[in-house]
Design a protein around this nucleic acid. Structure first.
Length: 476
DNA sequence: GCATGATCATGC
DNA sequence: GCATGATCATGC
């Protein structure tokens, strides 16, 4: 079993580093990440159980209940909070998010801006796991891990909620506090023993111990935002529109405008060398932050920004999803991941065309891989890559004038198929060769080959000239 | 100017 | 870390 340490496994003074480290648990469990053996029993540590266990085992801290954030040097609070699946299969919070106990005696002397509550709520590393009453907590799976800060627009409401709660205590009414007094922040009861009472400062009547908490309904909006499943907004004239009509209606007002003009109209920064300018403009025009709007999730739509040159050509090929060679060689075409992906995925192409000085929005179109091509060219390309993988991939290297080493492989190339090819798709290149030589971060960036060698993770790509011919055929 | 390999940017 | 979407850079 691993025992991570702050300052060794991550920099506990840097929010960025803490979050990056925490993301190791995404779609994973404490048992997997810490190599906890099957027969290790979960022992509760402190009162909160699982949250404390994460702090102790994963972050290497002994939990404290001081009134300062968990990662004091980074001024960052950690909250480990459960999710459940509702009747329609959606992930929702299982409960409210308790922030900190209300100290009745102290809170009446505080101002919101310097309050204990604000200090603890303003910046939180939120780790949402899927609760399972049957499972050993070491096997709880983390679904969402993100840095959360009080959104500007919610600050006034949370401040007003705090004020209502504190005013009630000041009026000697701590025993009458109720969760329904407030909107986002509530004073929830916090004791397993319902007969427990605490002193309050402005009345002799003892009050139930309570804590500041974000209501479950509020946490639900946080979760939805993180899962990015908000619908594309429709105005009243668009309420009966199909997805295609809606998308066209959203894009239409911008057709003919240059990328710079669209940036200005949408308030998007127009920076030179901005790799994601066009896809970002597209998302903004649609009123979404990424392609995970609920409509696109439901319909399996992937949004692609395409730039055409003056002759209608497209410079870059289009990346699809990465694959593992060892899975590829076990598959048959009909139920391979590439075939299923192309059968099930609709592409939304948003086309910008160069007019000699600017890229102007030309229009958009939905596209999917024609079934005929799937059965012929794509299949043949896939079979050829699979066969070459099984036969064994050979590598040769060359050094460019800067001394950088490039590794060439014996797999089929773009010119070998009219529709698809494979290319590296990783953070950085990485290899492990037959002689044991290793280049780059193999664990992170490479895939294993059937013969035990490793090469930079690859994706299937749609050939640029194929994409341009398809777009041309659609009249764009 | 194309082909191929490599890398970047962003969000979670 | 990893998926997703996208572009860069060198050799020929």
């Amino acid at each position: 079993m691993k025992h991570p340490k702050p300052g060794v496994d991550y920099d506990s003074t840097s929010t960025e580093d803490i979050v990056y480290y925490a993301l190791n648990l995404k779609n994973s469990t404490l048992r997997k990440e810490l190599d906890i053996s099957e027969n290790t029993k979960f022992e509760r540590r402190g009162k909160g159980g699982f949250g404390e266990a994460v702090e102790y085992y994963f972050f290497g801290y002994t939990p404290n209940s001081r009134n300062e954030p968990d990662f004091a040097e980074a001024d960052l609070e950690l909250k480990v909070t459960p999710l459940k699946v509702n009747s329609s299969g959606k992930l929702i919070p299982k409960e409210r998010l308790v922030i900190t106990m209300i100290n009745y005696m102290e809170v009446i002397h505080e101002k919101f801006e310097s309050s204990t509550l604000l200090h603890k709520v303003k910046k939180i590393l939120l780790m949402h796991y899927l609760h399972d009453s049957e499972a050993n907590p070491f096997d709880y799976e983390f679904k969402i891990i993100h840095l959360w800060e009080v959104p500007k627009e919610d600050y006034p409401t949370i401040k007003a909620d705090w004020q209502i709660i504190v005013d009630k205590v000041r009026q000697g009414l701590a025993h009458e506090l109720s969760g329904s007094d407030t909107d986002y922040l509530e004073a929830c009861t916090k004791s397993s023993d319902s007969s427990k009472r605490r002193k309050q400062p402005c009345s002799p009547i003892p009050a139930k111990p309570r804590a500041f908490a974000l209501k479950a309904s509020y946490v639900s909006t946080i979760v939805n935002k993180a899962l990015d499943a908000q619908p594309i907004t429709r105005d009243s004239s668009q309420s009966g529109f199909s997805l295609e009509q809606l998308v066209k209606a959203k894009i239409a007002p911008f057709v003919g405008a240059t990328d710079r003009e669209i940036s200005e109209r949408l308030g998007v920064e127009y920076g030179a060398g901005n790799k994601n300018l066009w896809i970002k403009l597209t998302y903004c025009m649609l009123g979404i932050r990424n392609n995970r709007a609920s409509e696109f999730m439901k319909a399996n739509v992937t949004v692609r920004a395409i730039r055409q040159e003056t002759d209608g050509s497209i410079t870059e090929s289009m990346s699809l999803t990465p694959f593992e060679f060892n899975e590829l060689v076990c598959e048959e075409w009909e139920n391979s991941s590439l075939c299923s992906y192309l059968e099930e995925t609709r592409f939304l192409f948003v086309v910008f065309a160069f007019d000699g000085s600017d890229y102007r929005l030309k229009g958009c179109t939905f596209w999917n891989m024609p079934a005929k091509l799937l059965d012929s060219s794509v299949k043949a390309g896939w079979e050829a890559i699979r066969a070459a993988t099984i036969a064994g991939i050979k590598f040769t290297s060359s050094t460019d004038r800067n001394g950088k080493v490039l590794y060439e492989n014996s797999l089929p190339k773009k010119a070998d198929n009219p529709v698809i090819h494979i290319r590296p798709h990783a953070k950085l290149s990485a290899y492990r060769f037959a002689d044991g030589r290793e280049v780059g971060n193999v664990q992170r960036d490479a895939s294993e080959l059937p013969d035990g060698q490793w090469m930079t993770k690859q994706s299937f790509w749609l050939n640029n000239n194929f994409v341009s011919s398809q777009i041309e055929a659609l009249g764009l």
